[in-house]
Simulated assay, not measured.
Amino acid sequence: MSNKRWIADSYGKINLGLHVLEKLPTGYHRIETGFAFIEWSDRFEVRISDEYELTITGSDIPTDGTNLISRAYNAFNTYVGLKRNYHFTVSKQIPAGAGLGGGSSNAALTFRMLNKMEDAGLSDDEIVDLCRDLGADIPFFVYGKTGIGSGIGQDIDFADIQPDAWIVTVFPGFESSTAEAYRHCAPNPDPGFSLKGVLLEEPLEEWQYLLQNDLEQAVIPQHEMVGNIKDQLLDFGADYAAMSGSGSTVFGIFDQDFVAINAYESFHELGLASKLTRPKFQPDYGIYVKE
Rank of each mutant, 00 (worst) to 15 (best):
L82E: 06
K83Q: 14
K83F: 03
N85C: 13
N85A: 07
Y86N: 14
Y86F: 06
H87S: 08
H87E: 05
S91M: 09
S91I: 08
K92D: 08
I94T: 11
I94Q: 08
I94L: 07
P95N: 08
A96G: 12
G97H: 10
G97D: 13
A98R: 03
G99C: 00
G101Q: 10
G101D: 01
G102M: 04
G103V: 02
G103C: 04
S104D: 14
S104W: 14
A108V: 02
A108M: 05
A108S: 08
L109D: 00
L109E: 00
T110A: 04
F111C: 14
R112F: 10
R112I: 15
R112C: 13
R112T: 08
R112K: 15
L114M: 06
L114F: 10
N115S: 08
N115E: 11
K116W: 01
K116T: 11
E118M: 00
D119C: 09
A120P: 15
G121V: 01
G121H: 06
G121E: 04
L122I: 09
S123M: 01
D124Q: 11
D124G: 06
D125Y: 09
D125R: 04
E126W: 02
I127C: 05
I127P: 02
V128Y: 05
V128F: 06
V128I: 12
D129E: 11
D129H: 06
L130E: 09
G135K: 14
G135C: 08
G135L: 11
I138W: 06
P139K: 09
F140T: 04
F141S: 10
F141T: 15
V142L: 03
Y143N: 01
Y143K: 00
G144H: 03
G144W: 08
K145N: 07
K145A: 00
K145T: 11
K145D: 10
K145C: 02
T146A: 08
T146L: 07
G147Q: 00
G147V: 00
I148P: 10
I148F: 11
G149P: 13
G149E: 13
S150A: 12
S150M: 13
S150D: 03
G151A: 15
I152W: 05
I152K: 06
I152F: 09
G153D: 09
G153A: 15
G153S: 15
Q154K: 07
Q154D: 11
D155Y: 12
I156G: 13
D157F: 12
F158W: 05
A159G: 05
A159I: 02
A159L: 11
D160C: 07
I161E: 13
I161C: 14
Q162V: 09
Q162H: 02
P163G: 02
P163R: 04
A165C: 07
A165S: 10
A165Y: 04
W166M: 09
W166Q: 11
I167P: 15
V168N: 07
T169G: 05
V170D: 13
F171M: 08
F171D: 13
P172D: 00
P172M: 00
